[in-house]
Simulated assay, not measured.
Amino acid sequence: MTVRGVDHVGLTVPDVDAATTFLVEAFDAVVLYDTLPADAPPKGGHETDERLGVPDGAREVRVRMLALPGGPGIELFAFDGAAQGAPAVPTDLGWQHVALYVDDLDVTLDRVVRAGAVALGVPRPLPGPEEGARNRFVYVRTPWGSTVELLTYPDPQPYEAHTDRRRWHP
Rank of each mutant, 00 (worst) to 15 (best):
D155V: 06
W95P: 08
A19S: 14
G57H: 01
R124V: 13
Q96K: 08
V30M: 12
L52H: 02
V113M: 04
V98T: 09
D49I: 00
F79S: 01
P125C: 06
E130F: 06
G71R: 03
R59T: 12
H162L: 15
V13W: 03
S146D: 11
A133G: 10
F137R: 11
L66Q: 04
P90C: 04
R136L: 11
G116N: 10
L100F: 13
A83Q: 07
H97M: 06
D80M: 06
A40T: 03
G44I: 01
F137K: 09
A29Q: 05
A117R: 04
V3T: 07
E75V: 04
A133S: 13
R51P: 00
R111I: 07
R136G: 12
G132F: 14
E47Q: 08
V140G: 06
V118N: 04
A18S: 09
P154V: 06
A115L: 02
D92K: 02
P90D: 09
L36W: 14
R51A: 13
F22H: 12
T35M: 15
R114S: 15
W168T: 15
E75R: 05
E131Q: 14
A26S: 05
V30Y: 01
F137G: 13
L100G: 02
V112D: 03
G44M: 04
R124N: 14
D155L: 12
A133T: 13
P123F: 03
P170L: 11
T20C: 07
T48P: 01
D39P: 14
R136D: 14
V61A: 00
D15Y: 01
L93G: 15
D164M: 14
D7V: 13
G44Q: 05
M1C: 10
D39K: 09
G116F: 06
P127E: 04
L105G: 04
R59Y: 00
F137Q: 14
D17Y: 03
L76H: 12
R167E: 12
V24S: 10
V6H: 04
P123M: 07
L109D: 02
G145Q: 12
E130V: 08
G53K: 00
G57S: 02
F137T: 10
D80E: 11
D164K: 12
G132H: 13
V89Y: 08
A78T: 07
L150P: 04
T142N: 15
P170Y: 05
P170H: 09
P69Q: 08
G145K: 09
D17I: 00
R136N: 12
A29D: 06
T35P: 15
T152E: 12
V140A: 06
N135P: 13
D155A: 04
L11G: 04
D92A: 14
F79Y: 10
P125R: 08
L66R: 06
V16A: 15
D80V: 12
V148D: 15
K43Q: 14
T91Y: 00
V118W: 00
L120G: 00
P125Y: 00
D34H: 14
G57P: 03
